[in-house]
Write a protein that binds this DNA or RNA. Structure first.
Lengths: 341, 341
DNA sequence: CTGAAAGCGCTTACAG
DNA sequence: CTGAAAGCGCTTACAG
């Protein structure tokens, strides 16, 4: 038989309202009474009933805003689907979730959109923050106003966030290097196509990749690194340039613009010769894997990222439940032809 | 503003009790009244509030029994942890979850334990069923008594189950073969260490593996298949025999008894020479990967299996919500040194 | 500072 | 067959 506030109230000789106030540290309770109630709750091993709490709290009309720099990036389709799933799961909680999207990584645009959202402040803000001190400062202000801030897919340091939800980018790069090491023999020249040095995750993937090459596979030599700015046209151009100027055995695509890059590979007639490792599993990448152009891809559970962003934020708003860790890393999933789905 | 039964009741000119009875197909409502109520609910786009429903239903005292053939198998530790997580999540629903464990795969023992549990029948039974017609017949009887049956980690055909939760074993074997294909060149001789031909999943892994070898990598030749019966001593013995009788380049361990098998590999001094693919990521297997003895392992999200067994069964008991598919396959996760955790 | 009462949206004995 | 009322376990205006 589970312990309820009614039992605590009886044992403490106070009303249920007072128990509620004491246990939830609400103001206006005599300190001694509160202490007494808390002691009894502890003795009885009281665990609040989350369902009842959620039902009662549904009167509060809480709101979560989600701001994604998703742009044209097909990767974010799955994040969006995860968000939808999460919303369906919390439908009965009376919490409103609104999603806003930006294209590109302009600091000004992100700041402006944040200000716009703050005209009508939500109870929590989930965001893919740009790694810039102005953004970080602004978000810290928001966090100070008792609005929970959750970073999704992209992280920044020095922010008083509830948590980060996304992949461990260093590990992602390391895993890609290890894969390449296992599927090759002898001296190998590799080129890296990253997104932007200004995006922390991209940088971390490059670093993780390079580090494992040096440390575990010194026969693998990183000959060139170029930036696609997550754009297919630029991706095409820089990949083409790279392939024309270097004799490479392998490519590591660790950001957006992969479709452009693959087009360049095909144009150079190198799709049979090159070993290629990518990130994520958009429909196009799945097709490349099925046709053997790409050997493997390292994914990051985008649906889970979207889903967890909603449910973890909800758990915080309803139950003040902090996630188990500050950084909730999703699995770096290695996908090949036969475990694609 | 979400639609509630109160609104439907007002619009239909009946009481909330009657609305509840009509919408939930409970007996004792005039057919015309019921139809009217349902039409209005549909018009208003009514979605029941799951939280309120759960709170009200918590009076029912529902129970889920879980019967695992977990034996000594360290793999099941994670399944158990997943079950614990699921239980924590549904704590407020007033549903009791009890777990029972068997060692080995004796049909008689499983049948006997089932009978024992049915002395005090639960509302749902989650089970790792042995693939035997007597077990299947018994479980079908149980399902006919309005007890939801969920198969976990092991599946059988011809059972009126709510769903199966576990991996796609064929894909698991295919993925292992593809991995081996990618990390090798030229003619390769491989030996397979499986558990038992009587366990459907083991058989499916062998089949998936062999099929991809033949179809995609004809240079890979399966030279020997032996059964460990999921036991380390037998695993040691049959692996040793296999290595003494065949000149192999690679091994595929697709069931329990891996620790024994690896001991044999080491004793033969072949840990540097052989490419080895395993399944699952017990602590020992992680250690083999870190030390380079095992190249990669194909895992099946054991925590998720345990967790989902609890939450999906709960969703059925509380909301009659059927899972989206009859077979809920977990990801076949390829793990290497740098994406192990 | 505290209690009594109403409320969140369902379900369910009970009386008629 | 139907309705009024109590209940699930919390939260919260309101009155004192």
């Amino acid at each position: 038989m589970a312990v309820t506030i009614r039992m605590i109230a009886e044992k403490a000789g106070v009303s249920r309202g007072t128990v509620d106030r004491a246990l939830n540290n609400r103001p206006g309770v005599n300190a001694e009474v509160a202490a007494h109630v808390r002691r009894i709750a502890k003795e009885l091993n009281y665990e609040p009933n989350a369902v009842a709490k959620a039902l009662a709290i549904s009167k509060r009309k809480l709101r979560i805003d989600i701001l994604l720099n998703s742009g044209q990036n097909p990767f974010f389709e799955k994040v969006r689907r995860g968000i939808q799933n999460g919303m369906r799961e919390i439908r009965s909680y009376g919490i409103t979730v609104e999603t806003f999207e930006l294209t590109g990584f302009s600091v000004e645009e992100q700041l402006q959109k944040i200000d716009e959202l703050m005209q009508n402040p939500p109870n929590a803000l989930v965001i893919t923050p740009i790694n810039d001190h102005r953004v970080i400062d602004r978000l810290n202000q928001i966090a100070a106003e008792d609005i929970a801030v959750v970073t999704l897919n992209m992280d920044v340091t020095g922010l008083a966030k509830l948590c980060f939800i996304g992949c461990d980018y260093v590990r992602s790069g390391q895993t890609a290097a290890e894969l390449l090491g296992q599927i090759t023999l002898g001296d190998i020249s590799v080129g890296i196509l990253t997104g932007s040095a200004h995006i922390l995750g991209h940088q971390q993937r490059v670093n993780g990749f390079s580090q494992v090459c040096e440390q575990d596979y010194p026969r693998i030599h990183v000959r060139a690194v170029a930036e696609t700015e997550d754009d297919n046209e630029i991706g095409y151009r820089v990949t083409k340039e790279m392939l024309e100027n270097h004799s490479l055995d392998a490519l590591y695509f660790c950001a957006g613009g992969i479709d452009g890059g693959i087009r360049a590979v095909k144009e150079c007639g190198l799709e049979k010769k090159l070993k290629i490792i990518t990130v994520d599993d958009t429909d196009n990448i799945k097709a490349y894997i099925e046709s053997g152009i790409v050997n493997a891809t390292v994914c990051q559970q985008p649906m889970k990222q979207g889903h967890d962003a909603v449910t973890i934020t909800t758990d915080w708003l309803l139950h003040e439940k902090r996630p188990s860790r500050k950084h909730l890393y999703t699995q770096n999933e290695v996908k090949l032809r036969y475990n694609l789905d």
